[in-house]
């Protein structure tokens, strides 16, 4: 069977504009159907990596490349604006999803769905058709209907915000989802619900990169590959057992043994 490379990052280097370098040469290949986890202590550059891939304007790329597989061949993400990356099939799940007061979740979800759907060459849906799709995603993820009536993320609990990220992911149907600390600030039930959501959305044709500090998310989602990040680099990559080792021994043993 042909292995399809979904995301390819080569020697990626980046810094905060006019600041010190944070990413110091990242290499990563994620194939279709795979789930990867990027782990590392605070300040190792994990969140920067996800934001740089999504095109956050605060960062400057100082070297390397990122390409995303599309039906028309690999696409150079670094040449695209953030919204173009999203339309091409990239999704970033935020560690701290933003609140948008005054905009109902339904209005927001319909706006992003229609925009991305149109950009991918599909015919626009009438409101009823959208409502059907929305309902099917709510059901799939076990989310209450009242969720869509509220303003986007306003007065949502931590768990609700993260589930709303997963709902957006379900609607936008990305080829590659980067989920930044999707497990932070969640109690066990919320964590399970979010993990179930991610599991449900996995197919052989998409891929997921989890960015996490703790191993506990990986109790529910078993990654194919685990990468340990420190000081802007991947210092070790391995199978899911690597995550268990981190859980048992902490990060120090790797950090100290890397030389």
């Amino acid at each position: 069977m042909k292995v399809e490379i979904m995301l390819k990052i080569e020697q990626l280097k980046a810094r905060v504009k006019d600041g010190p370098e944070i990413l110091k040469g990242i290499d990563l290949e994620v194939n279709a159907g795979e789930m990867h986890a990027v782990m590392g202590p605070n300040g190792s550059g994990k969140s920067t990596l996800s934001r740089v891939i999504a095109g956050h304007p605060d960062y400057e790329i100082t070297g390397g490349s990122i390409s995303l597989e599309t039906p028309d061949g690999p696409l150079d993400l670094l040449s695209l604006e953030p919204h173009e990356r999203a339309r091409a099939g990239l999704f970033l799940g935020f560690q701290y999803p933003l609140e948008i007061p005054g905009v109902s979740n339904r209005t927001f979800l319909r706006a992003i769905f229609n925009t991305v759907n149109r950009a991918r060459g599909n015919a626009p849906l009438d409101p009823m058709e959208f409502e059907n799709i929305l309902n099917s995603k709510l059901e799939l993820l076990g989310i209450q209907r009242e969720f869509v009536e509220r303003s986007v993320n306003v007065d949502f609990s931590g768990g609700e915000k993260k589930r709303n990220e997963i709902l957006q992911m379900a609607l936008l149907n990305p080829k590659l989802a980067l989920l930044d600390e999707i497990d932070s600030g969640l109690d066990v039930d919320a964590l399970k619900a979010v993990a179930e959501g991610v599991k449900t959305l996995r197919t052989p044709h998409n891929a997921v990169v989890l960015i996490t500090h703790y191993q506990r998310l990986l109790d529910y989602l078993l990654p194919d590959r685990v990468h340990i990040m420190a000081d802007g680099k991947f210092i070790r990559s391995g199978g899911s057992d690597l995550a268990l080792e981190i859980e048992e021994r902490g990060y120090d043993w790797i950090l100290n043994s890397k030389d």
Binding site: P82, H83, L92, F94, A111, I112, T115
Partner: peptide
């Protein structure tokens, strides 16, 4: 930050 959030969802 809000603008980037929406851009990351495909809105220009």
């Amino acid at each position: 930050a809000q603008v980037f959030y929406l851009e990351s969802r495909g809105l220009d």
